[in-house]
């Protein structure tokens, strides 16, 4: 009897073990990770022949783009610098009531579609419909700072989110300075953001 009962159990166990490998969605809780130093190379990345440039604080540091032109800036003291990862030139957390804001600084070759396409992309990100070319002038401000022409857009969403964005053509690239966060924080940070734009200047070559 024992034998007869054992065999089906063993077969079931084998099948069950075989089924264990099925991948499944997992959830777990982990402690906050300390961000790796900037410019961390990818795993298995082909070895560079020369050392990568040393990681330096972003604030006030000229940052080279792919085309060589660079911009420098000084971030407000209450913005906390964070790991910019591979794509950003600078990255900050902006603390505020109702949640934190995310400040990103990026540069892409060319005009990346122009002001209208980019402002409409930002509007889409916070749930707003696109605007027409004719409405562009009334929704943006133009600033001339340190030899740079800056297009500033304040995009307030229908919901709780808002964006403060600045588009800065420089050399062969276009730079984007974007603060995304709760609408209250965006309103509160507007003066600091404009003051920050005053510090943006071509980096020493």
């Amino acid at each position: 009897m024992l034998v007869r009962r054992t065999l089906p159990a063993l077969i079931a166990l084998t099948v069950a073990l075989g089924g264990c490998k099925k991948p499944e969605v997992q959830s777990y809780r982990v402690a906050k990770e300390t961000p790796p130093p900037a410019g961390t190379p990818a795993v298995n990345a082909p070895a560079a022949n020369t050392p990568a440039p040393a990681a330096t604080p972003m604030s006030g540091t000229p940052v080279p783009t792919a085309s060589g032109a660079a911009l420098a800036w000084t971030a407000p003291a209450h913005w906390t610098a964070k790991d910019p990862g591979g794509m950003r030139k600078g990255s900050y957390t902006v603390k505020g009531t109702g949640g934190d804001g995310d400040m990103s600084i990026m540069a892409f070759p060319g005009d990346v579609g122009g002001d209208l396409a980019n402002i409409n992309r930002w509007r889409g990100q916070i749930g707003l419909g696109p605007i027409a070319e004719a409405e562009l002038a009334s929704t943006t401000q133009h600033l001339d700072r340190n030899g740079l022409h800056i297009t500033l857009a304040v995009v307030n969403g229908a919901g709780a989110q808002g964006i403060l964005g600045a588009i800065v053509p420089h050399g062969d690239a276009t730079w984007f300075f974007k603060l995304t966060g709760p609408a209250a924080l965006v309103a509160q940070e507007q003066a600091a953001f404009t003051a920050f734009l005053d510090t943006v200047k071509p980096g020493a070559q």
């Binding site: 961390t40 190379p41 795993v43 990345a45 790991d83 591979g86 794509m87 950003r88």
Partner: peptide, 9 residues
């Protein structure tokens, strides 16, 4: 300029 690979944020 030299091609390298970075992790995406």
């Amino acid at each position: 300029p030299q091609l390298d690979i970075d992790r995406t944020a």
